[in-house]
């Protein structure tokens, strides 16, 4: 068992080795017998556990109880919003659904359109002779269209897509 594996077990099961599952407990005791520094590490984690447990055991304070009551009162006073009965998009992780984040396809399409326009506009500023030189011979048709004249005004993204 390496030092890292030992720390991983500490994080998974806490600093009381007696509570670790059997194979890990036996191996931990073997490795602690060989490496005295692990006993020190265990003691440090045990002290940290005590500190964290004390914070937990304190439970909610008077301020928290009052804050909870305020939240309940505010929610009771608010007009509840319309419920959203649309079926969930199944491939989306549920935490995204929980945050009401849905695919922003219209925005993505607008972005792709802008990128394509930028590419075409870039082509339009290269003169035909430069293009011929870049292509290596003069056998290609000349670029005559002034693509920068194309006007593209994407509409604002729909609010529901954001």
């Amino acid at each position: 068992m390496t030092h890292d594996e030992f720390e991983h077990l500490l994080a998974a099961h806490g600093a009381d080795v007696a509570l670790w599952p059997e194979p890990a407990r036996r191996r931990a005791r073997e490795v602690m017998a060989r490496d005295p520094s692990l006993a020190g590490l265990l003691a440090t984690h045990a002290a940290l556990d005590v500190r964290l447990a004390r914070a937990r055991s304190a439970g909610p304070g008077a301020q928290d109880l009052a804050a909870g009551r305020r939240v309940v009162a505010r929610l009771a006073a608010l007009p509840l919003p319309k419920q959203d009965a649309r079926a969930p998009v199944r491939w989306l992780p549920s935490w995204l659904l929980a945050l009401d984040l849905r695919p922003a396809w219209p925005s993505i399409a607008a972005l792709a359109g802008m990128a394509a326009l930028g590419f075409l506009a870039g082509l339009s500023v290269i003169s035909p002779s430069q293009l011929d030189a870049a292509m290596g011979d003069g056998a290609h048709p000349q670029v005559t269209a002034d693509l920068s004249m194309i006007v593209f005004e994407p509409g604002p993204p729909e609010e529901s897509a954001l």
Binding site: P81, K82, D84
Partner: peptide
């Protein structure tokens, strides 16, 4: 809580 309310049907 408001998100819970809105998303409850789903």
């Amino acid at each position: 809580f408001l998100r819970v309310w809105r998303a409850a049907p789903r």
